[in-house]
Design a protein around this nucleic acid. Structure first.
Lengths: 229, 229
DNA sequence: CGTCTCATTGACACGAATCAACCATTGTGG
DNA sequence: CCACAATGGTTGATTCGTGTCAATGAGACG
C-alpha cells in the first residue's frame, strides 16, 4: 500500500472550539485538513452584516462563537427574525445561488467561512458530513415549527419567556445578548410590548434585571411555566 | 460482464402519479424496484389520523394524492397546524424513533408507506436520494420560516389570503380542501376570524364563495395584494 | 455636564378572541 | 317526503391584548 503524506491539520482547526460540534465533526483530521485550505476566519462586530437577502452569497460556514440572526423584511418594512444561530451552527446556502435572508451579527462573532463551491465539494465527498447536515436541517425544521406555534398563538409574555429560556436554559445570572429591539424583531412584537413583558416578569419575581443587559432568573421552573403557549 | 436480472418495477410504481416528484424520483427503475418490495399503499379518509405525536412511528412514506396536516398541541389544548403536505411530499421521521407531530388526513388521501428501516436503508444506499431529501428539507425549512413571518406579523386577512393562494396559486375556481376550523388551526386564528376574513374578501370582490367548499378567485393579483404582511 | 441612544411607562386605538345567537346544509328516522 | 336534530358556518356585542403615539427615564459616551 502506498502511503501518502496526510496534509497537516491547521492548528486553528485542531484547537477549534467547535471542532466537535460543527459540521466538521463528521470529518476525520485528514479529511478536514483538505477542506481547511479553503477556510477563512472572519470576525464580525455586533450589528455587522454578513449577507443580504437576494444578493449573491458566495460564502457559507460555521459559527465559532457569538451569535447571528437571520431576518426577513415584510412589505411594510418591519423586520422579522426567523432564526438565531449560535456556536457550532452552520450559516449560508450551499446550493442556492442567492441568500434567502439577511444575516447579521448580534454579538461579537467569529466565523469559519468557506467558498460555497469548496463546501459543496466537501459535502459531495463525505457522506457522513452530508448526513449530519441533513439531520441538522431536520432539527432546524423542528425548531422552526415550534417557533411557528409560539408566534402564532403565544402571548407577549410567553414569547419573551421563551426567548429568555433560549439564552439561559438553566436559569441563573446571564447577559442578554441582544437589545429590546432585536428581541422584538425575533418575537414578532414591538419594543414596548417586550419591555412591558419584562416588567411584568420582574414584578412577578420570575426575573431580575440590572441595567440594559443584566438578567437573573432565580427560578427556571417559574419561567418555563410562563413560556407555555 | 455478468448481467443480472433486474427486479421488475411493480406497475404501481411505473404508473405512480408522483414517480417523478417524490423522493423516489432520485432512483432508477431498477433501484426503485428493490425499495418497492417494502412499500404498501394505504388510503386515509378525511380526518383519519396516520401518526400521533410522541408515539412510536414505524412508518414513513410519500403522499400520492390528497392532503395531510402536521399539527402540534399547545398546553391549553389549542391545535396548531405546522405544515400542510400534498402530493409528492414526504411524511414521517426516518431517523427519529417517535413522531414529532400528529399527522392527520384532511382529504381522501393515498400514501405509499415504508417501514422506517427500509427507507433509511434506501437513503443509505442511494446518495442521490439523500441529496434530494436534504434539498427538500432545506426547502421545507424556508417555507416554515416564511410562514413564521406570516403568523408573527400578518393580519387575519393576510393569513387567510395567503392560505387561499396555497390552494389555488393561479386563482380561478377551486374547492377548499379543508374546513374553516382546519384553516383556523393552520393560521393561528379562530374560526370566527377566518369566517370574517372570508366575508371581507367576498365583500371586496376578491373572492367568490358558494356553499361550504366552493371558491372562485377572479383576480389573483388582488388576492396576492391582500396576502402581504 | 450635556447629548444620544435605548428602555420604560402611560394613554389610547384597533384588531382578534370570546361569548352568544342565528343561519345553512346535511343526514336521520318517522 | 317531511320533520328534526346535528354539524358547520356566519354574524353581532363585548372584552382583552397588543400596536401606536407620546412623554419620560436611564445609561453610555464624548
Amino acid at each position: 500500500m502506498l502511503t501518502q503524506a496526510a496534509p497537516l491539520l491547521p492548528s486553528r482547526c485542531a484547537h477549534c472550539a467547535v471542532r466537535d460540534r460543527a459540521l466538521c465533526s463528521a470529518l476525520s483530521d485528514a479529511e478536514l485538513a483538505h477542506l481547511a485550505d479553503a477556510a477563512r476566519i472572519r470576525t464580525l462586530a455586533p450589528g455587522e452584516p454578513l449577507l443580504f437577502a437576494g444578493e449573491d452569497a458566495p460564502l457559507c460556514g460555521n459559527l465559532i462563537d457569538g451569535a447571528l440572526k437571520l431576518t426577513a423584511h415584510t412589505a411594510t418594512g418591519a423586520e422579522q427574525t426567523v432564526a438565531l444561530l449560535f456556536a457550532g451552527d452552520f450559516v449560508g446556502d450551499v446550493w442556492a445561488g442567492t441568500a434567502t435572508h439577511d444575516v447579521t451579527a448580534i454579538a461579537e462573532t467569529r466565523l469559519c467561512l468557506f467558498p460555497r463551491a469548496a463546501f459543496a465539494d466537501a459535502v459531495d465527498r463525505h457522506p457522513l458530513m452530508e448526513r449530519l447536515m441533513l439531520k441538522r436541517t431536520l432539527a432546524s425544521l423542528e425548531e422552526a415549527r415550534a417557533r411557528m406555534t409560539l408566534l402564532a398563538r403565544g402571548s407577549a409574555e410567553a414569547r419573551v419567556a421563551s426567548l429568555l429560556l433560549r439564552f439561559a436554559p438553566a436559569g441563573g445570572r446571564f447577559e442578554l445578548p441582544i437589545s429590546r429591539g432585536d428581541m422584538a424583531a425575533a418575537l414578532g412584537l414591538t419594543i414596548e410590548s417586550v419591555s412591558r413583558a419584562l416588567t411584568k416578569l420582574r414584578a412577578d419575581g420570575v426575573l431580575d434585571t440590572s441595567g440594559r443587559r443584566g438578567a437573573h432568573v432565580p427560578n427556571v421552573a417559574a419561567l418555563k411555566a410562563r413560556a407555555v403557549v
